[in-house]
């Protein structure tokens, strides 16, 4: 937390969910959401609002509070309610400069759609998988986006925007029991509560690991093995579209989706 990074007037909303430990299945602070809170605390400790849509009594929320939050705002709604309408309604009114989410939730639908849906509803640009907010100047943020194998892409994005926070972001600080148990859980009934009909019709089962093709590396030296393990997989059949009219590029994407049967 460099003080020069703190922005007195910046307002950040970090959206947090109830996570799930992969081993024990126990509720916890979700790893990516906790990174979002950490990022918020580092950027704007005063202007950070941590937001959750759901059950105000979920104990796991306290684990976020233990990072040093005075309060967590909760849009109270039922178990089967869709979080997007409630959150977008609230965020539409509170108008933060930056909305941070995890990439995908650790439980529930875990579709990874939250950032996109919010961006659509709020009319804000969406940046996925950011690793760091480097600085903010003139109403624009300099971001680092996490790419596979430790690569980063520098982006400049105008405020306000929605960003999902990647695991590559700074690890969240330790959650302390004292502040966690004393933080205020400010619950208010969500203004809109939309039952998630689709999810209600689903049944949940633990995912099974899919078999993975073994990558046989015929490497003679350690250096070769290292290269094989870290090299970018060269996907074939890819096509780079660049510097063409937007409609032409969009058409190419559309055709591909059609061809792959993603849309019909």
């Amino acid at each position: 937390m460099q003080p020069d990074k703190q922005n007195a007037n910046l307002r950040i909303a970090a959206l947090v969910s109830v996570g799930k430990h992969p081993g024990s299945g126990r509720a916890r602070r979700a790893e990516q959401d906790a990174r979002a809170v950490e990022m918020g605390l580092a950027m704007a400790p005063q202007g950070l609002e941590v937001l959750h849509a759901g059950d105000p009594h979920a104990e796991a929320l306290r684990a976020y509070a233990g990072m040093g939050l005075k309060k967590i705002r909760i849009l109270q709604q039922g178990e089967n309610a869709d979080a997007v309408p409630a959150l977008s309604q609230y965020l539409g009114e509170s108008k933060p400069d930056i909305v941070l989410t995890g990439v995908r939730a650790e439980s529930g639908e875990s579709s990874g759609m939250m950032a996109y849906l919010l961006g659509e509803k709020l009319g804000m640009p969406v940046v996925t998988r950011i690793a760091e907010i480097v600085s903010i100047d003139n109403g624009q943020a300099n971001l680092l986006q996490a790419l596979p194998r430790g690569q980063r892409r520098a982006l400049r994005v105008p405020l306000p925007f929605v960003a999902s926070v990647d695991m590559a972001a700074a690890a969240p600080r330790q959650s302390a029991f004292g502040p966690a148990s004393r933080a205020e859980m400010e619950a208010k009934k969500a203004d809109v509560e939309v039952r998630d009909e689709v999810q209600a019709s689903w049944s949940e089962a633990p995912a099974r690991k899919r078999p993975k093709r073994l990558k046989v590396v015929k490497a003679k030296t350690a250096a070769d093995r290292f290269k094989a393990a870290t090299a970018k997989s060269s996907g074939d059949g890819g096509k780079v579209l660049r510097d063409k009219p937007a409609s032409e590029m969009a058409q190419a994407v559309f055709d591909l989706l059609l061809e792959e049967g993603v849309i019909r």
Partner: peptide, 23 residues
């Protein structure tokens, strides 16, 4: 330091998180 400050050094925080989540 641990309960109020959340400042257990090195692997401390990780171990405590594990104890909470997995016993």
């Amino acid at each position: 330091l641990t309960l109020e400050k959340g400042n257990t050094p090195n692997k401390g925080a990780e171990v405590l998180d594990n104890l909470i989540a997995t016993d």
